[in-house]
């Protein structure tokens, strides 16, 4: 377990280090909102909403993947399930 955890953390660091220079090297300006709803976040909001920002159930694996789910939503499920059992 420790090995895999270290591997995943190392990969996360690699991905982050790969992306940060790309962001920092940005030389263009942000969207100004000069065209309709551009810049308000509306046009891209569905990209997040159809995923897990506004729709966490998208992140829940099916029954064939029982017991394999991690991440914040798994934490929520475990926490509130424990509360319910304790009551």
């Amino acid at each position: 377990m420790r090995k895999h955890t270290l591997i995943k953390m190392a990969l996360a660091a690699i991905v982050a280090s790969a992306s940060l220079p790309a962001i920092a090297g940005s030389g263009t300006s942000g969207s100004s909102g000069t065209s309709g709803s551009a810049g308000l976040g509306i046009d891209y909001a569905a990209l997040a909403v159809s995923g897990c920002s506004g729709n966490p159930s998208t992140c829940i694996p099916g029954s064939s993947s029982e017991g394999t789910m991690g991440g914040p939503i798994a934490g929520l499920a475990k926490h509130f399930s424990k509360n319910k059992r304790n009551r």
Partner: peptide, 29 residues
């Protein structure tokens, strides 16, 4: 790993309105 999928819990409230979060869809969802 939590056994969230083993439960019948499928309804979850959202953690954000517009901001991206760090978890997402996997194969099969």
């Amino acid at each position: 790993a939590a056994s969230a999928a083993a439960s019948e819990l499928k309804g979850f409230a959202a953690p954000a309105l517009q901001a991206p979060v760090a978890f997402g869809a996997r194969w099969g969802t």
